[in-house]
Design a binder for these strands. Sequence first.
RNA 1: GCCCGGGUGGUGAAAUGGUAGACACGAGGGACUUAAAAUCCCUUGGUCCGCAAGGGCUGUGCGGGUUCAAGUCCCGCCCCGGGCACCA
Length: 1000
Amino acid sequence: MQYDPKDIEKKWREKWRNDKTYRVLNDASKPKYYVLDMFPYPSGAGLHVGHPLGYIASDIVARFKRHNGFNVLHPMGYDSFGLPAEQYAIQTGQHPAKTTEVNIARYREQLDNIAFSFDWDREVRTSDPSYYKWTQWIFLQLFDSWYDHEAQRARPIMELLARFEIQGWHAADTAALTGDVEEELGAFTAAEWKAFDSRTRHRILQNFRLAYLSEAWVNWCPALGTVLANDEVKDGVSERGGHPVERKRMPQWSMRITAYAQRLLNGLDTLDWSESIKEAQRNWIGRSEGALVRFNLKHGAGDIEVFTTRPDTLFGVTFVTLAPEHELVEVITLAERREEVMAYVTTAKNRSERDRMADVKTVSGVFTGAYCIHPFTGKEVPVWVGDYVLGGYGTGAVMAVPGGDQRDWNFATYFGLPIIAVTEGADIGKEADERKDATISSEGFLKGLKVPDAIKRSIDELVKIGAGERRINFRLRDAAFGRQRYWGEPIPIYYKDGVPYALPESELPLRLPEVDKFLPTEDGEPPLARAANWNYQGHPLETTTMPGWAGSSWYFLRYMDPHNEGRFASPEAVNYWQQVDLYMGGSEHATGHLLYFRFWTKFLHDRGWINFDEPAKKLVNQGMIQGVSQYIFRIVPVIPDGPREFTMLRLNLNGIQGEITLPAPTKFVYVSADAKDYFSGLGTRLPNSTTFLPINYLFQRLPVDVKHVQSGELLLGPFIDSLNVDANEEVQFIFHAGIISRLNGAARFPGVQETFRFLTGDIGRPRTEPEVEKMSKSKMNVVNPDDIISKYGADTLRLYEMFLGPLEQSKPWDTNGIEGTFRFLRKFWNLFHGADDVFGVSDEAATKPELKVLHATIKKVSEDIEKMSFNTSVSQFMIAVNELGTLKCNKRAVLEPLVITLTPFAPHIAEELWEKLGHSTSVTLAPWPKWDASHLVEDSFSYPISFNGKTRLQMEFPIALDAKSVEAAVLADPEVQLRLEGKSPKKVIVVPKRIVNIVV
RNA sequence: GCCCGGGUGGUGAAAUGGUAGACACGAGGGACUUAAAAUCCCUUGGUCCGCAAGGGCUGUGCGGGUUCAAGUCCCGCCCCGGGCACCA
């Protein structure tokens, strides 16, 4: 029997399913290993070849650990709430739950085809009420918690209430209770607290809750009645529809992730994650040390607070800039400047933040007419508004030091504001001096100090005169948690007198209501406002839903105990499975998902629900699989029905050779990539001064479906079929050697009647031009694993994806090499089958060379899996099969252990052969073979003999021979002597079992 | 601008400081076959010398350095990919 994956793979898929081979029990008697993949969003496009790359790698590790006696948790599920399903629902009216269901079914089928060892009994879906019940429950815990910065952990809000009743709240509590990173709060005594009405108390508590309602800036699009993400806004209008967008402050549910900023930063040091991901998180958290400085206003009470990392440059301050959103803008602007300032503010703040940040070149701003007082010099400092200052970062105001900060310099130069040099050796006529190792040269007490000393000294001075203090600032902002959307978890909150209250736990899950349309209401309320009876005991329920990252922030816990109805997971399950041992996923989640994931884990730990505070010990990012698009070129008439006849040059390998008149060129004139250069000067003159194409023809580059391309050549038949041309319509191809065309299915070379076959055989096929880029439908370069599986089988796909190269490296998907892995499997199969294709293995004892191959393979593959170097393990398997083939080895003693080692990579073929070898239980349960070093010992080693590091000849010596004897033997060799030309070597280096190097 | 990756044959790639290019694709040649498929064998970094056997030189983005020995370590550049950012 020839190796035929089709039947084998189907057979085993069914058997695994029926036998529940991959079921995992919480069996505390075995050591555990938790392998987790980032679960997919089930999009309508289905799985593409990029998805399985990580899944296959983690599956190999999971299976390997299982063979090595671990109880392995390796689950899969779906991040099934999300925008695409909702958009589709808006367009088609289909309920997102329905389309999600259909998409999941397709994903499941595709995943099953690749033989992942998932325990599907543990599948979770974030959109399933039995799952989101617990997402809502965690939300309620967050709502019920505050962060104690002294104890560095979250605590129940009750404990804060108790504290208020005894101590009230004082300015001195700011550092302890809000960690200096949150909003200011007015002081109150214990007596005052007790006297507050419930509304006031709730309002105050919002400042402490980890899930809280606050005013936040959003991109509001009145026409769409919804809030847009930064990247949905371009040039102040919505990307879809081009409707105006305004920045608006709206009540929003937020997560106080900033409370965890320092711990999220510290925790990184304990994690076995890639340095690039950790660095990305560090940058995102963006801790900076500096000072808070207060500039008193010249007129009226109050001050402008600025945060600066460079208080040492204070003497260089020549103005202060406020963000357009800054609340003081309206207060301090002089009446006569009001109109101009407000006009600027309106335009500036309505630019999206991304726009403002991306546009470095344009400087814009306006003078408020107001002044503040420099804390050290007492001089008046003008206050400006500029959109280079962002409202959401720091205090929303900067002290501008044009001599020390380039952005301030640009602003000052543009508006003609004074620039003072702050550092020695600065050339402020050209640019700001941002060096952090400079010496301060400005006037005052900082003069002559190095920057770090000057920073310290300036803060001391600020504290002394009460104009500022040391401050740590984080770039990280609290995460917006509410979404004006339908397809997400409802937030379990109801409102009484406008005050938000937690829904009782017994009311969970708060199910998504039915609505007539998935659109906002006419007055801009989110879709949930359309639901009938959307209230709790007569009180309105929250109408926004949770963002996509809510469900994925804790899913790793649910897999541990997915059907528990009384808790998100039982303490026993959590204690047993603990952290994820290996987390596999894309690096695009570096700052989104992975940060929230860590945040929720820390929170659940603080409140005592779990006993660890990082979700995943080890993280591996699989590289991106890019698509290889294929482009062909086309000549199209600019006027579709205009005159068609034109003259072209006849081309061949030597270039241009005569003219061809195409009597009736059609709309389908394609140009092979190897001839495209002749068209580069389109409409202009070619080197021999003959116009090639009339000016009213266009030369286009367009992608062709990668399915219609093989080895860089266009497959004419399938391609022409895909064009939907009438059978009598002509399609022409121009390429290097000439022109071919097809009419009525037959093709002819101009002037000569020929068959199609002649043309493809003789002239070849039109070449396409490849380009590596992101996989996308529009580029027609999406490769779906199903096609490959139906052609070669899942085992080949698994092996090939691993063989492509190092897991973490991005690489283009290219099936050119896939034959190699398929051939390998066939050769592997043939080792067990005689020339007549009948299964047969021998029970003879293995020979020494056979054992060497076997043990070298076990060793290499075992070590490579631990290192996640799967491409090299596949190579080792190939080497083993080639060598065993040469040795004509069909011995059970060699092949049986080899089958086990191949199982993690190619489980179907391994199961089939294992069964043929006479086993009745699954090979997935077989213990991993141990390699024995004694089989790998060599008797002798062929030393490369090099002269000055250049290898010249080989000499074989027994391994046991010591360095001295090797040296003597080498020098005694006549050929070595010949090369020495009588000279005696300066030095001879002998590295046993490695090399001999003679220095002359 | 900053941060993180990465530059090795025609292609994907391999290489504890120790024989650069394993393994695979592709290409070329051959065997088997009516033919095809499949399989097997040989050649395959570049270049030069040689009828041949064989040999020389050169070669891991570029320029230096350390070392008996560098794809690998150090210094300085260039290029490509990805991420972040008027972050004060």
